[in-house]
């Protein structure tokens, strides 16, 4: 079996289209995760023990069950409770919530890395707690969290093929379809691999640069 370039060029447009969909799934899921993750970590730091414990359990539950199961659950079990969602919506919700649980842990590490003295200094200038988070704590928690957040950005991108199982037409789904139609899988799967690599590697590099830039910008080492 040899590589067929003419066929590769022929199917390429479909893969470019699917790459866009994959990026949308990763970007959309990540946007949900970034915001929801912050909500999850702040909810775990409220003085109300019942809230703290419930959220803690939910985060643990999400982190301890497979993403694929969660995707299936939202898409197939939802309708039995009257919640009918499109593959796209189900996929984004499942992957967004899943990664929100991971990102909340990254945020938690960042927030806990801010010395206690910063809280005390904020109190000494009479700053309320919400403002202290916004102005003092989160800006300092961010730089140490960037590399973890970046890892999960690449992670969510690499997990988008899971959405192919519920019919989201991203890269993996497209490769399967093209392959099945022509009984040839070498070129489609190789292309998927190359595309993932071509996006993941530069992203990881940019994240390290971004982290350095942020630290410099904030006058930190």
């Amino acid at each position: 079996m040899e590589w067929r370039w003419d066929w590769t060029w022929e199917i390429l447009p479909r893969f470019i289209d699917a790459t866009g969909k994959t990026l949308m799934a990763a970007g959309g899921g990540y946007a949900i995760a970034v915001v929801l993750g912050l909500v999850l970590v702040l909810a775990q730091r409220t003085p109300y023990r019942i809230v703290t414990m419930c959220v803690r359990e939910v985060v643990e539950f999400i982190r301890s069950t497979p993403l694929l199961l969660q995707v299936f659950f939202v898409f197939y079990v939802g309708p039995q409770f009257g919640i009918n969602l499109s593959p796209w919506t189900s996929g984004l919700i499942a992957i967004g919530v899943h990664y929100a649980a991971y990102l909340s842990e990254v945020y938690r590490g960042g927030i806990e890395s801010v010395p206690k003295g910063q809280w005390e200094a904020a109190k000494a200038i009479n700053m309320p707690v919400t403002q202290t988070y916004r102005r003092i704590i989160i800006p300092q928690a961010l730089p140490p969290a960037i590399s973890g957040m970046g890892n999960y950005l690449v992670g969510i991108f690499k997990d988008t093929p899971m959405l192919s199982v519920i019919g989201v037409a991203e890269l993996m789904h497209t490769a399967n379809a093209v392959g099945a139609l022509n009984y040839r899988y070498l070129e489609p799967y190789t292309m998927v691999g190359v595309i993932f690599l071509a996006i993941s590697l530069p992203t990881a590099f940019l994240i390290t640069q971004f982290e350095k830039w942020v630290r410099r910008k904030m006058g930190m080492k």
């Binding site: 010395p115 003295g117 005390e120 200094a121 000494a124 003092i136 800006p139 300092q140 904030m218 930190m220």
Partner: peptide, 11 residues
């Protein structure tokens, strides 16, 4: 208040 370890906002 002023503190032993200054506690300036580093950013």
């Amino acid at each position: 208040m002023c503190f032993q370890h200054f506690n300036l906002f580093p950013h």
